[in-house]
Design a protein around this nucleic acid. Structure first.
Length: 289
DNA sequence: CCTTGTGTTCTCCG
DNA sequence: CCGGAGAACACAAG
């Protein structure tokens, strides 16, 4: 599940390889994935270039060289953006493209859209469950979408007083608050559970019941955990891969997510599983209050 | 049946 | 009756 650290990893990976490359052609294999008419989509992208890649929450924003359009890409649950340079690439000691054949460079079953650049390299958008999308917007539409997002962690604007403000008078539980993109951008189920465990707070606590010291703990741990997850190139639990098709390493640092029934790493008590904010939730009954 | 991110819709409350 | 908040539902496919 791509959340802020995973999307940021993809953003950085692709920034290093696709900027200022002329887009020679675009193949649309799944029409519903494109939230524009295919004609418009192709017209804008063909012979254009990506000049910058930004991110807000879990949304990627590819700035185009024409100066007025932006390609939005949301990976949702199973989306992947994988760059293939077309050259021999060594990953984990294996030469992926050795003895490349026409067969090998074909799109995969889950490929919905792909781009071919002038130098022959390609960018694949794969999405098994077809929740993800690509959408070309103009500046006004972009600003409208941006305005719906809340505080962006890991930016200078992420300040403690603004954070406390989010909690005050809010009646929803703290996990639902963390998942609410209009309050704080980029947190999904994995990092919500991890941050709450690190902060020693039960996911079903109501936001307005938290003491300031508890709110501040979440503030701190959210930044620490997201930064660490980016350093580890994200969490690959099921489907996520980075901009080169490689897995992320933060899965080795997860303390609660996906560890239902296993012993708490802090106190050895078996972790409990429940549903909070409509999502599967893992927590330690002893370490979280 | 479960899984999840988000847009939409419904419901409640003041 | 309006608006906001929050919860519930819809979506896809393995």
């Amino acid at each position: 599940m791509p959340e802020l650290p995973e999307v940021e990893t993809v953003r950085r990976d692709l920034t290093a390889v696709i900027l200022h490359q002329k887009i020679k052609s675009v193949k649309i294999l799944s029409q519903p994935t494109i939230k524009n008419s295919p004609a418009l989509f192709l017209r804008i992208l063909k012979n254009n270039e990506f000049v910058k890649i930004e991110r807000i929450g879990k949304l990627l924003i590819f700035n185009l060289a024409n100066g007025k359009n932006y390609l939005l890409v949301h990976l949702k649950m199973t989306g992947q953006l994988i760059y293939d340079s077309g050259k021999n690439v060594v990953v984990g000691g294996h030469s992926l493209n050795k003895n490349r054949t026409e067969e090998m460079v074909k799109p995969q079953r889950s490929t919905r859209v792909y781009f071919i650049f002038a130098d022959g390299s390609r960018l694949f958008f794969n999405d098994q469950r077809r929740f993800g999308y690509l959408k070309i917007v103009d500046y006004n539409e972009l600003e409208k979408i941006k305005s719906k997002y809340g505080l962006e962690p890991l930016t200078p604007e992420f300040k403690k007083d603004k954070w406390r403000q989010i909690f005050s008078g809010r009646k929803k539980n703290v996990k639902a608050l963390l998942l609410d993109q209009s309050l704080v951008a980029g947190v999904g189920n994995i990092y919500a559970d991890e941050v709450l465990f690190a902060s020693g707070i039960l996911p079903n606590r109501l936001a307005n019941s938290l003491k300031l010291v508890e709110i501040d703990k979440i503030f701190k741990n959210l930044q620490i955990i997201l930064a660490r997850a980016i350093a580890e190139r994200g969490t690959t639990f099921n489907n996520y891969v980075d901009g080169h098709g490689r897995k992320g390493g933060f899965v080795n640092f997860l303390k609660v997510y996906g560890r239902k029934g296993q012993n708490c790493k802090k106190c050895k008590t078996p972790l409990k599983s429940t549903k909070v904010a409509g999502r599967g939730t893992i927590y330690c009954i002893k370490c979280q209050k």
